[in-house]
Design a protein around this nucleic acid. Structure first.
Lengths: 158, 158
DNA sequence: CTGCTTGCAAATCTTTTGCATTGAA
DNA sequence: TTCAATGCAAAAGATTTGCAAGCAG
């Protein structure tokens, strides 16, 4: 085990020792799902991470959680409001929902593929509200994704 | 052939007879791609349709375009700016880009799954501009998706 | 205990690739 | 004529399912 892994473990334990863990367990119980060690492992793997694809998540849990179980667990997590899927290019990635990981949006750099989080913004909220009223809908969730050049990759002439 | 199919064909022909067809061909040529009958078929199948998944598009072109070719054609269309992928739930769907199908966003009803288009709005444009300036990025494209209850499915008590 | 979860294996679905043939320019 | 595009077959990758065994409540 290398130093990075160790630091990550300590980091995760810090999070897990707060009431994030209780909230996680409550979220599952509320929906009638049970708490298992695999579900804990998956949850911990998502804490403090940038959005991960199924494959990345699976790699990180190799030998600890079966692939089929992982899919089933993610499905349970979605139903419980623990994780959300965010569209990235043609695929999607997974991250903890706003309850664990304050709600935000993303900018993806089309050159270096870096994902820059945008904090939930009063502007975005207002927009959703306006649009919803105009169409007489009751908003439940929303995603905003922007693609462009990040500061570093920005062409010189702009 | 049923009446719906016939109407759809006439409808598509109307579109194709306008300069949409020229724009389509120009878009491909501009990028050095050639015009083929399969590409025409795929393009026509997308005209005036709500967003389609790969599978739906393939079904509609059964026997006319090979599956592998369809994927290659869609890839070419994306590079040429003819189609865009929009995230819908865990998957994505395809629709003609704003040049053929004015740029807009979508609201998906979480009950009946209807997709309601939102016209490109001055509010949305302003939001993208503000956020981009704040993060010093150069925006290239963006997607906004909202999920909620549509007018019809809206619970009575809200 | 009992029923929900998991792991394993296999099925299914989606997307990509290699290659010989066809067709656009 | 020449090179890009297509169809076919097969590979690769992603997701789902059936079922027996294991574990949480």
């Amino acid at each position: 085990m290398d130093i990075c892994k160790t630091v990550a473990t300590i980091y995760n334990n810090c999070y897990m020792s707060t009431n994030n863990k209780e909230l996680f367990e409550l979220s599952l119980r509320r929906r009638g799902f049970s708490i298992t060690s695999q579900r804990h492992m998956v949850f911990k793997e998502l804490i403090g991470q940038e959005p991960l694809s199924m494959r990345e998540l699976y790699e990180r849990l190799r030998g600890q959680v079966d692939r089929a179980s992982l899919y089933r667990i993610i499905s349970v997590f979605e139903k419980s409001g623990v994780v959300v899927r965010i569209p990235v290019g043609w695929k999607y990635k997974l991250e903890l929902s706003e309850a664990f990981n304050y709600h935000h949006h993303h900018i993806t750099c089309i050159k270096c593929n870096r994902v820059i989080p945008i904090e939930e913004d009063e502007t975005v909220e207002r927009l959703i509200k306006e649009v919803s009223e105009k169409h007489a809908i009751l908003p439940f969730a929303h995603q905003l994704e922007i693609q462009g050049f990040c500061r570093a990759c920005r062409p010189a002439d702009s």
